[in-house]
Amino acid sequence: MTTDPTTPRPRTARWLLRLHRPALYGFTGLVIVLAALQLALAGPWADAAARGWRQFDACTGTGMCGYDQNAILRYKDYYDYATYALDALPFLVAAWAGAALTGRELESGTARLAWTQGISPARWLTVRLAVPAALVTAGTSLLFWLHHRAWAAGRGRIDTLKTWYDLPTFHANGPTTVALALAALAAGTLAGLLLHRTLPALVLGTAVTGGVVWAAQRLMPHLWPAVTRVTTLKQGGVGTGILVEQGLVTRSGAHLPLPRCSSEAACDAALAKASGYYSAYHPYSHYWPLQLTTSALLLVVAGVLVLACYLELRRQTGALRGAGEATACGAKGILVGA
């Protein structure tokens, strides 16, 4: 179908925002609520919890001792709520992208109608990827910065604060949340393009996002060189951080895996061959290198998924174009024969 070049092109971005206003309002509301919660966690709630822990630590263990337990529990509980909500955000993005952004429009025929109104399929897909990506990037960037600020406000002051290498905290504290959300957007969009069904695309997009999260967590410790620490058998233990590998060190310096002892005598025999333990781990100084390398890997995954979206759309629209041309030729043949 040809269009008049003088005809104004439809403002697809504005139309997309109007079409998905409920999702836009919901995402904006979620960002506002989580931002307000994390501002409270970084400010008065962190101060109150820290004061409660100082009171608790000042207790001598004799007699009655009063401390603000409610402030301690409030910080702990709401910190967990904010962390899990931020970690769940990529799954929500994937579910929405699969169900509403592409799946529903292809299922109802709205997408094909748009392609006959002067909007090319490539432009249709570009707008559906670019506009949500910009909004998701802005919202999740603000939220991970506020989460890291709330975590830093309690570091060294609140005894129940999660460690930096706790996986939910690690992802909520850094740009991996943004990269995961973008990969989830691409995964959901691809699911909708593949299935043309709302509910199946929702399930597939969410499942692919879960697989990406699992793979990222598995690969993350290996994306940056670990620090190796050697200790004596009496010292034992490892450094504080993300453990990559641990085992025994022989007197010659060779590394052996930790023994799986069936009895105390078997353990003693295995330890008799060793002079100490070795531990390969990531200390806190590796926090940002791990965040950035993991984010880069996830952005590559997102890019691959976006490319797959365009290839799938090209395949489908090419098939539709071929079917349309065949129908037109058949109709012409009937008229000529008549």
Rank of each mutant, 00 (worst) to 15 (best):
P121T: 06
Y75C: 05
K273W: 15
T327H: 15
R315L: 06
L290Y: 03
L298W: 06
R229A: 10
L223A: 01
W96G: 11
D268H: 14
V301F: 07
I158V: 12
R18L: 09
G337C: 14
T126G: 14
R321S: 13
V306S: 00
Y67S: 03
I242D: 12
R197K: 09
A71N: 07
D268K: 15
G61N: 04
W124M: 07
L24A: 11
G330K: 15
A71E: 00
Q291L: 07
T2Q: 15
L113K: 08
D268G: 13
Q55S: 00
D268I: 12
A95K: 09
W124F: 13
T232H: 03
E105I: 03
A49E: 00
S120C: 10
I72Q: 06
A326S: 11
P121S: 09
L185S: 01
R314I: 01
T232R: 05
L113H: 10
G52Y: 02
P90L: 01
I119Y: 04
V178C: 05
A88K: 02
T189M: 08
T163H: 13
L298E: 08
D47G: 06
H171I: 12
D159C: 01
C261V: 12
R74N: 13
T83V: 14
V227I: 12
L180T: 01
A187M: 05
A150D: 00
R314Y: 00
A270N: 05
G247R: 00
A269L: 15
L248W: 09
V336F: 15
G237V: 12
R315A: 11
T6I: 14
P44E: 06
A183C: 05
R9H: 12
C261M: 15
A88N: 03
R112L: 11
Q117W: 09
T232F: 00
P168M: 04
A152W: 10
D166I: 06
V304Q: 07
L89E: 01
A97S: 09
D80C: 10
K162M: 06
